[in-house]
Lab assay of single mutants.
Amino acid sequence: NQASVVANQLIPINTALTLVMMRAEVVTPMGIPAVDIPRLVSMQVNRAVPLGTTLMPDMVKGYA
């Protein structure tokens, strides 16, 4: 099973992602693959992402 990107903290809307905000976890359903974490750094979320939420492609501006 491939790990997905999960929020390590509450990420407010329009926040630029940093490594500290994300962790890799095997979850269902799968979200953004953990291998993409370096690519996500400095991209912004388009909604508030609660702690423990799996990041989906439509939550990150410019990802999809």
Rank of each mutant, 00 (worst) to 15 (best):
V26Y: 08
A34Q: 11
R39F: 14
L51H: 10
V49L: 12
A3T: 11
T53V: 13
T54S: 08
M21H: 09
G62P: 06
V41Q: 08
N1A: 15
V27L: 11
V60L: 10
L55S: 00
P50G: 10
R23I: 09
V20W: 09
N46Q: 12
S4E: 01
A7S: 08
I11R: 00
L55I: 14
N1S: 15
M56H: 09
T53H: 09
N14H: 11
S42L: 06
K61M: 12
L17V: 03
V60S: 01
M59W: 14
Q9D: 15
V49Y: 02
P29N: 15
M21G: 03
P57R: 05
P29L: 14
P33E: 11
R23M: 14
G52R: 05
R23S: 13
A34K: 03
V5K: 00
I37W: 02
A24H: 11
T53G: 10
Y63I: 05
A7W: 02
S4N: 01
R23D: 09
L19E: 12
T54E: 02
N14K: 05
Q2F: 11
M56G: 14
V45R: 00
M30N: 13
T53M: 12
Y63S: 03
V35K: 04
N8I: 07
I11G: 01
P33C: 14
R47T: 12
N1E: 15
V45T: 13
Q44A: 08
V35A: 11
L10H: 11
Q2S: 14
T54H: 03
V26T: 13
I32W: 02
N46W: 12
K61A: 11
T15D: 04
V41W: 04
G52S: 13
N14V: 03
S42D: 05
T28I: 04
V20F: 06
V5L: 04
P29D: 11
L17I: 08
R23Q: 08
G52K: 09
I13M: 12
L55W: 01
M21R: 03
L19G: 06
T54Y: 02
M22R: 00
M59Q: 09
A7H: 01
M30R: 03
A24G: 12
T54P: 11
D36H: 08
Q9K: 07
P38Y: 05
L40H: 00
N1R: 02
P33V: 05
P50M: 11
V20Y: 11
A24C: 06
I32V: 12
